[in-house]
Design a protein around this nucleic acid. Structure first.
Lengths: 217, 217, 217, 217
DNA sequence: AATGAATGAGTTTTCATTCAT
DNA sequence: CATGAATGAAAACTCATTCAT
C-alpha cells in the first residue's frame, strides 16, 4: 500500500456501526421532514448523510424500514421529554399542565422531528401509522391514569369514558401542535395554556369567564 | 341491438362533459383516499372512472389540479352537511351538539371523502392545505360566533380567547374523527358525545362525574 | 327551429371550401413557423384557424400533408415574387440584382413564410425537403440560365460549372436570409448588396476595394 | 470463465464514466442525425449506446442537455479540423483554400456529425442555436482576419464590409455542405473548388472564363 | 357541413434497489 | 468496510387521430 493510499484510507473513516447509523438517521429525519416520505429520495438522504446508498441499505434496510426507524427514534425522544416533565407527586391538574408544556416545548424545539413523526407518518398508511399508534397508545395510557387517579384522590369513582377522553386530549394536542407548525408566532406556553383551559375547564365554564391558571410553584 | 349493447352504449358513450367530470371526481376521491396522493396513479383513476387518461387531463387538468378539485368538492359537501344540522334558534350548547353530530355523521358515512379531505390534504403541502385552510377557517368562525353568542346571551362579556378555543375545538374534532377512522366499532353518536363532554364540561368537571347531556327535544 | 337557433346558425358560417382552406393554411403557417413542425399541435392550429380539428383533416389531411401544403403555397408565392422583379431585357448583373432584391424583400416581409419554408422544411426529412428541393431546382435553373446568357451575350462560351455555381448562389442566398432572420437590424437592401458584391466581384476583387454598384436605372 | 463470458464482461460491464459518456454521445449523434431531434427517442439512444436510460440521465442530463453536448463536441471537432489545415504563413488565397478543403473533407467524412450540427441545431431554437452561433462566430472571425490581412499585405486599407462578407462566406459554406449531403456523387475537392471560385473570383470574372486555381504546392 | 367527445400509443423522466469491485 | 456503476419498472403527461351526433 502506497503512502498516498494509506493517507486516504485514514481519511475515509471506517466508523463503527453505531455512529454511521446515527448519521444516517439524522439525515433521514431531515430529508423526510423537508420533502415528505415520497418526495424524499434515497439519493438525497445518502448525500446528506455523507454515506453511500449501499451503506444505508446495509444498516437500516429499505426505504420503509428507514422511515419506520426514524419514527421510532423520534417518538421515543418525545415520550422521554414528556416523562421528564411530569412526576406523580404533583396535583393532577399540574401534572397535565407540565405534560402539555413539555410536549409543546419539544415540538417547538424539534419541528423537524414532529413533522416526520406526525404529519408524514399519519398520511402514510400501514407500517408507519403502527409505530405512531403504539406511541399514541402509551400517551393515552398516561393521561388515562392521570384522570383515574384524579377521581380516586377525591374519593370518587372514575368516569367510564376516561380512556376515550384521554384519546381525545391526545388527539387535540397533536392537532394543535400541527396547527402551531403553521403559526409559529405564538409561544409554546400560550398554546399549552389554551389547550389546558379547553380541556380542564370546558367551554361550559369558559363562557362564564372562569379560567384555569397554574398554581404558583 | 341486444340488451347488453344497449346498456353498454348507455353507460359508456359520448356523455356530456358535466357527467364525465363527476365520474372522474368520484373515481379520484376513491383512489386518492385509498392509496394516498402520491401512490395514486392517474392510470388507476382513469381505469376506475372508466375513462381514458386524456379525458382526465382535458377536463380536470394535472394531478395536482385534480386533487385540489376533489378537496374543494368534498369540503363543500361537509360544510353544507353541518350547516344543515344547525340553526341559530337553538341554545348554544344544542347548536354545538348538533354541529358535532352532523360532522361525525358525515365522516361516518363518507369515510373516503374524509380521508381525502383531511389526512391526505393535510400531509401534502402548498396548494392543497390552502383549500383545507379555507374550509377550516369557515368552521372556526362558526364556532367562534357560537361561543360569543353564548356569553352574550348570559349577559356576560365574551372571553378574549374564543377564536383560539374555536380553533382548538375544530382541531380536536378533526383529530377525533381521524382517530375514529381506525376505531370503527364506536358509534358516531358516542364519539360526538365524548367530544361534547370534553369541550363543554372540561376535565375539571368531568373528573367530578358531572356530565353534559342533550336536553330532550 | 327557434329564432335563437336560426340566428346562431347564421352566425356559425358555412363557408365554401376554398375559404376554409385558406383560413386553415394561414393558421398553419403561423403556428408551424412559431413552434416548428413538431411542437406545433393540431389543436393549436385548429384554434388559431377558428375551425374544428375534424375540418382540418377533412380538407387538408394529416399533419404531414398539411405541412407540405404550407410549403407548397409559400414556395409558389416566393417564386412569383422573384419572377415579378426580373425581366430578361435587363443586363445580366441587373437581373441578378433585382432577383436578389425581390428575394430579400419577400423574406423581410414574410418572415413567417420563410421560417416555415426554409428552416422547418430543411430540418424535417423526407416529403418536406422534396417540396423544397423542387422549388430550389427552379430557382437554380433561373440563375443558371442567367449565367449562360451572360456569357453568350459577351460572345463567350459559358463555363461548365454554371449550374453548380448557381446552386451555390441559391444556397448562399438561403443561408444569408436565414442569418438575417436573427439580425433584423440590417436593411433588406444592404443584405442584398452584400451578397451581390460577394458573388459578382468575388473576394479577389473585393480585397482590392473594387465594388460593384447597380447601374442607375 | 469462458472466452465468451470474458469478452462480454470486458465489453459490457462497469466501465468508467468517461468511456460510457463517449459511448452515449456517439449513439446520440447517430440517432439525432438519423431521426432529427424530436423524433429521436431516449429509448433508441439508450439501446444504440448499449446503456440503460438512467445512465444517460445520470451522465449527460435531459434530452436538451444531451443534444447540446453533442453539438458542442462535434463543433469543436470541426473547428479543430479546420485549424489543423491552415497556417498563417500561407498566402491568403491558399489559406482560404485549405480551410475550405478541410471543412468539406470533415463534412464528407462525418456526415452524421454535420447533420446533427447544422441541420438539426439550426431548426431548433434557443440553447442549441447558441452553441452553433458561438462556433459560427469563431469561424467568421477567422475569415474576417484573413480578408483584412489579405488587404493589408497588398498595402491597401481593408474594406469595411469584411465581417459581413465573412459571414456570407461561412453561410455559403454551410449551405453548400448541406446541399452536398443530398448530392454525394460530387467529390469534396470539387465542391471546395466551386465555392473557392465563387467567392474568390466572383461571377463577374467567372462569366469571362477566368478561373482561380490553387498554386502548386 | 361541422364538432365535442374520446382514446391508443408513445414520450420523457425518476427512483428504489443491487451488483462488481 | 465501502462505493461507483448499472438498471427494471413505473409514473405523469401529450398528441395525432377518429367516432357519433
Amino acid at each position: 500500500m502506497s503512502v498516498d493510499e494509506e493517507r486516504r484510507s485514514t481519511r475515509v473513516k471506517r466508523l463503527p456501526r453505531e455512529v454511521r447509523e446515527r448519521q444516517i438517521l439524522d439525515a433521514a429525519v431531515r430529508v423526510f421532514s423537508q420533502y415528505g416520505y415520497h418526495n424524499a429520495s434515497m439519493d438525497e438522504i445518502s448525500e446528506v448523510a455523507g454515506v453511500s446508498k449501499p451503506m444505508i441499505y446495509a444498516y437500516l434496510g429499505h426505504k420503509e424500514d428507514l422511515f419506520a426507524a426514524c419514527i421510532r427514534r423520534e417518538a421515543t425522544m418525545l415520550m422521554e421529554a414528556i416523562a421528564a416533565g411530569v412526576t406523580t407527586e404533583q396535583a393532577p391538574d399540574m401534572q397535565l399542565w407540565h405534560g402539555l408544556r413539555a410536549f409543546f416545548q419539544f415540538v417547538g424545539e424539534q419541528k423537524q422531528s414532529w413533522r416526520v413523526l406526525h404529519r408524514q407518518a399519519t398520511s402514510q398508511g400501514g407500517p408507519f401509522s403502527e409505530e405512531l399508534l403504539a406511541m399514541r397508545g402509551r400517551a393515552i395510557n398516561l393521561v388515562d391514569a392521570l384522570l383515574v387517579r384524579s377521581a380516586t384522590t377525591r374519593g370518587e369513582a372514575p368516569a367510564k369514558s376516561t380512556e376515550a377522553l384521554a384519546a381525545a386530549l391526545v388527539g387535540a394536542s397533536e392537532s394543535l401542535a400541527d396547527w402551531w407548525l403553521d403559526h409559529p408566532e405564538v409561544s409554546d406556553k400560550t398554546v399549552a395554556s389554551w389547550l389546558m383551559n379547553l380541556v380542564w375547564m370546558g367551554f361550559g365554564d369558559l363562557v362564564t369567564g372562569t379560567v384555569w391558571t397554574p398554581t404558583p410553584e
